[in-house]
C-alpha cells in the first residue's frame, strides 16, 4: 500500500464528505431550530439534481447561472415545505413532525416517479468540468475540485451568516430557546423560514454535485444522501453546524477508507461499517462530537 494510494483514497473521501456535509448542515440547522428530524431533506437533493438536469442539459443555460438557480430552487422548495406542512403543525409533539417529514419524502419520491419515471437518466457536465487532473499519484476531476472548493465557500458563507449577522443571531437565539427568543421580539416565523431556505438551498446544490459526480440520477436518489447526512449530523452533534460539517467529512472519509484499507471482501459492507462508526461515536460521546445537551421540547 503506497503513499499515493492512501492519498488518492483520502481525496476520494474528501469529495464524498463535502457532499454529505452540505446536506448534513441543513439537517442540523433545521433540527437545531425546531427540533425536527426532516426526512424530506434528502429528497431536496433529488430535486436539485433534476433542476440542474432540466436547466443545464435540456435548456443549455450556462453553468454558473444554473448553480444560482439550483440554490434558489432548493430554497423555494424548503420554504414551501415549511409553510405548507411544518408551520401548521408547529407546537405538535416531535413525532408528528417526524412522521409528516417522512410523508413529504414519500410524496416527493412518488411525484418524481409519476412525472419523471423511475428510469435512471444520464447526467453529464461540460468537458471543462470533467477534465482529469493529475498531481503525483493522485488523480481527480475538475468537478471534484469544484465540489470541494464550493462546498468550503458555501460553508464559510453560512458560518458568517450565522455568527456575524442579525438574522444569524436570531437563528442562534431561536435554537437556544424558542419561547425566550419570541419574548425578545424575534420574528420566529421569519427565522425558521430562513433556516429552512438556507438548509434546503445547500441540499439543492448538493444535488447538482451528486449528479455531476455520479452521472446518473433518478427520483429515488435522495434516500441515500438523506440517510447518510442524518448520520453525519448525529456524529457531529445534531444542531451544531460545525458538527455537521465535521460529521460529513468523517463519514465520507471513513466510508472510502473502510473500502480502501480493509481487504476487498469487506468492500460490499461499507454501509455496515458506517453505522458501526456511528454507534461507536455515540457510545463515547452520546451527544455527538460537538453536541451539547439541548433543551427537549415537547
Amino acid at each position: 500500500m503506497s503513499g499515493g494510494y492512501i492519498a488518492q483514497q483520502i481525496v476520494n473521501g474528501l469529495v464524498l464528505g463535502s457532499m454529505y456535509a452540505l446536506v448534513a448542515i441543513g439537517f442540523s440547522m433545521i433540527y437545531g431550530i425546531i427540533r425536527l428530524i426532516n426526512f424530506a431533506h434528502g429528497d431536496i437533493v433529488m430535486i436539485g439534481a433534476f433542476v440542474t438536469l432540466g436547466l443545464f442539459q435540456t435548456l443549455g443555460i450556462p453553468f454558473p447561472v444554473v448553480a444560482l438557480a439550483v440554490l434558489t430552487a432548493g430554497g423555494i422548495i424548503g420554504i414551501m415545505i415549511e409553510r405548507g406542512t411544518f408551520r401548521p403543525i408547529r407546537g405538535a409533539p416531535q413525532v408528528t413532525g417526524f412522521i409528516a417529514s417522512l410523508g413529504i419524502s414519500i410524496m416527493l419520491q412518488n411525484l418524481g416517479v409519476m412525472f419523471l419515471t423511475a428510469q435512471p437518466r444520464n447526467f453529464s457536465f461540460p468537458d471543462y468540468l470533467q477534465r482529469v487532473i493529475k498531481i503525483g499519484a493522485v488523480t481527480f476531476r475538475t468537478i471534484d475540485a469544484v465540489i470541494m472548493i464550493s462546498a468550503f465557500c458555501l460553508m464559510a458563507l453560512l458560518m458568517f451568516l450565522v455568527h456575524r449577522t442579525k438574522l444569524g443571531m436570531a437563528m442562534r437565539a431561536t435554537a437556544e430557546n424558542i419561547d425566550m427568543a419570541r419574548l425578545m421580539g424575534i420574528n420566529i416565523n421569519r427565522t425558521i423560514l430562513s433556516a429552512f431556505a438556507m438548509g434546503s438551498a445547500l441540499a439543492g446544490i448538493a444535488g447538482l454535485m451528486w449528479g455531476g459526480k455520479f452521472g446518473q440520477i433518478d427520483p429515488l436518489l435522495g434516500f441515500v444522501p438523506g440517510l447518510k447526512s442524518f448520520v453525519a449530523a448525529v456524529i457531529g452533534g445534531v444542531g451544531s453546524i460545525p458538527g455537521a460539517i465535521l460529521g460529513g467529512y468523517i463519514l465520507g472519509l471513513s466510508e472510502v477508507l473502510f473500502v480502501g484499507l480493509l481487504p476487498p471482501v469487506y468492500s460490499a459492507f461499507r454501509d455496515a461499517f458506517v453505522f458501526v462508526t456511528l454507534i461507536l461515536i455515540l457510545l463515547i460521546l452520546p451527544n455527538g462530537i460537538f453536541g451539547k445537551r439541548i433543551e427537549d421540547r415537547p
Binding site: 500500500m1 503506497s2 499515493g4 494510494y5 488518492q8 483514497q9 476520494n12 469529495v15 464524498l16 451528486w210 459526480k213 455520479f214 446518473q216 441515500v224 466510508e255 472510502v256 477508507l257 473502510f258 473500502v259 480502501g260 476487498p264 471482501v265 469487506y266 468492500s267 460490499a268 459492507f269 461499507r270 454501509d271
Partner: peptide
C-alpha cells in the same frame, strides 16, 4: 489478480477504482 466487491445501489466506486489502479 484482485477481487473486489460492492452492493447494488452503491454510487461511489472511487475506493475500488484506486485499488484497481494499484
Amino acid at each position: 489478480v484482485l477481487e473486489d466487491f460492492f452492493m447494488m445501489g452503491d454510487k461511489d466506486f472511487s475506493a475500488q477504482i484506486a485499488r484497481l489502479k494499484s
